[in-house]
Simulated assay, not measured.
Amino acid sequence: MDKLLLASIHDVGPRFESEVDRLVDLLGGVLGEGRFAMLVVPDHWGLAPLGEAAAFRARLRGWADQGVEMFVHGWFHKDMADHSGLTSFKARHMTAGEGEFLGLSQDEAARRMADGRALIEDAIGRASAGFIAPAWLYGPGALAALAASDFPLAEDHMKVWDPRSGAVLARGPVVTWASRSVPRQLSSLAVAALARTAFHGLSVARIAVHPGDTTVPALVDSIGRTFASFARRRPAARYADLRR
């Protein structure tokens, strides 16, 4: 398989419409129209219900018509579960209270997956590309629900896989940025700079951006340079290409 670039915009929904627009312009300018995925949140933190945002649902359909792959990205994107042990560490240190599917039971995870899928597929008028948990974090219940679903693709920090068969379709870390504190910003800038020199050997390079990235000029600059570095060496592909 030729080397590929997979790009994604996370946390897409009416709460972050202006930030998403900026990211669409940024990625589209480097990769071409529709050459990225969107991870759509049905109701971000219970503050932005997609079901009540007809205009934004129409925009999602327009992007899908341009070729953008649409993933179901949780339901609330907010973690409201109690955790202990290693799960508690992940909840505290790997995300800012956004690992929604880290502590859900299988039944509850399955319900939110199904409800999110129905809402998003109705908006875009076609099948969703797959399911990706908020913050890329999956607890046992979420993994069991995902394995029992018929989503064709899923992704975490280190891989893309087919939940139906368990087959791993791509391996390697996601390049992403963190905006919520200066230390995290500096760390993500350093990782992105390393990726621009050290990650070109990966068969599949994955780069993900978030609405909050647009609030920090240094991150926006790093995102542009990182996408340009990879786009010079490999085509921007679709996640569905991994299944061919």
Rank of each mutant, 00 (worst) to 15 (best):
S88I: 11
S188D: 12
Y138N: 06
A114L: 13
G103R: 05
G212D: 10
D162R: 06
A190L: 13
F56G: 14
M94N: 13
L189G: 03
A48I: 01
V191K: 11
A240D: 13
A228Q: 13
G166K: 02
G172C: 00
G139I: 03
H83E: 07
M158A: 15
R244P: 13
G97Q: 06
R180I: 15
D156I: 07
A127E: 09
P49M: 01
I124W: 00
A91V: 13
M94V: 12
R22Y: 07
L50F: 06
A129P: 03
G212C: 04
R238E: 11
E100I: 04
L242D: 10
D162E: 09
H210S: 01
L137P: 00
T87E: 14
R233M: 05
D43S: 07
G212L: 08
D43F: 08
P235I: 03
E19W: 09
D21I: 06
M38E: 13
G139Q: 04
L6P: 08
A64C: 03
L242T: 08
G28E: 14
A237N: 10
L86A: 14
R92T: 15
A142H: 00
R35V: 08
A205V: 11
G172D: 01
V12L: 10
G116C: 05
M38H: 11
A167G: 12
F151L: 00
S165G: 12
F131R: 07
V191L: 10
F199P: 01
A193G: 05
A236W: 00
I124C: 00
A154R: 11
R164I: 09
A109T: 06
R232N: 10
D221Y: 12
V20T: 09
R225W: 08
R233F: 01
L119F: 04
T87P: 11
V204Y: 02
P183H: 10
E108Y: 08
E69F: 09
V160C: 04
A123D: 04
F131N: 06
R238M: 07
S149H: 06
H73A: 00
Q185L: 15
G130I: 00
L169T: 04
A118W: 08
K78T: 07
G32Y: 01
G13E: 02
D25S: 07
G28A: 04
A195D: 01
W136Q: 05
L137C: 07
L39N: 13
P173K: 06
P173I: 02
R22I: 02
A198M: 12
V209F: 09
V168R: 05
S8V: 04
R15D: 03
M80E: 15
H44P: 05
L104W: 07
G67E: 06
